[in-house]
Design a binder for these strands. Structure first.
Length: 263
DNA sequence: ATGGTAGTAAAACTA
């Protein structure tokens, strides 16, 4: 049996985060790193520093906003951009990238944040999960080794956000968006982190820059997720949040989330 | 109740 160590990280600007990503990749023996919010168009993607580490790359970005990437020391096969078989919104391509690594299907998404529950973009966010489920149905089988990971912009349960009693109208915690996310998960996936850490509070992957000392005060959200099908969940070894890079100089507002599988 | 910070890319937008 082989192993697959996968991680997900919202960089909030990949070019501003190379001082964190490159050493972290070398030190953590990663088989696949899924990145969101690269904020760079393809022609300006920093390819060389990754190639210098012996990494393969797949990416799709747009100017200033969004952008997703996959980094791996292995061959990245079957690369697909966006919702290939559905009509595209303008920025869909830079929010969803899929591939196959070591026989495992991987879908890396940066789900739209939604702006406000009464904003049209929030309805697009809800629809986004339905379109993703349609993509799962069309492309994959529940028996496949499939991982869906990324910045989902949803805290699934009260335990996944600080002060949940104040967040009922937040675009990342509103009942409708939690249900939309869960419906997509129930296609045939499970939340790897909760599988290994049921009921564990204060486990967050995002701390807003604008809240002073948010990490120290525990004012975070668990909105980045790794979800996997049964064949992978049956062989999951580990799933944990690495918050150390959030404490470094010029950090992203998100942490790394990792999972180890036997494949 | 509001604003707080950060990245991109060149003033304002997104988060």
């Amino acid at each position: 049996m082989d192993k697959l160590r996968l991680a997900t990280f919202n960089t909030n600007g990949i070019r501003a985060r190379l001082h964190i990503i490159l050493p972290w990749l070398s030190e953590n023996n990663i088989d696949c790193l899924c990145i969101q919010e690269t904020k760079v168009q393809d022609r300006d993607f920093p390819v060389e520093p990754f190639h210098d580490l012996g990494m393969h790359l797949a990416f799709k970005g747009q100017k200033a906003y969004n952008g997703v990437a996959i980094v791996s020391p292995h061959d990245i096969e079957d690369i697909r951009i966006g919702f290939d078989d559905q009509p595209h919104e303008v920025d869909d391509a830079a929010r969803c990238i899929s591939c196959k690594i070591q026989g495992v299907h991987i879908v890396n998404t940066y789900v739209p944040q939604g702006k406000a529950v009464d904003h049209p973009d929030f309805q697009k966010k809800l629809l986004w999960f339905e379109r993703l489920e349609a993509l799962f149905n069309k492309r994959y089988h529940k028996e496949d080794m499939l991982i869906w990971c990324g910045d989902m912009n949803v805290a699934p349960e009260s335990i996944d956000v600080y002060a949940p009693e104040k967040k009922a109208n937040h675009v990342c915690f509103h009942e409708s968006v939690r249900n939309a996310f869960k419906k997509c998960v129930h296609w045939g996936l499970a939340d790897c982190f909760r599988l290994l850490h049921p009921g564990e509070p204060n486990q967050y992957t995002f701390y807003d820059y604008r809240i002073p000392k948010a990490v120290e005060r525990g004012l975070g959200w668990r909105i980045d997720h790794i979800l996997a099908t049964k064949p992978l969940c049956a062989n999951i070894q580990n799933c944990f949040i690495d918050i150390e890079p959030r404490k470094m100089e010029k950090p992203s507002d998100h942490t790394f989330l990792l999972a180890d599988f036997k494949i």
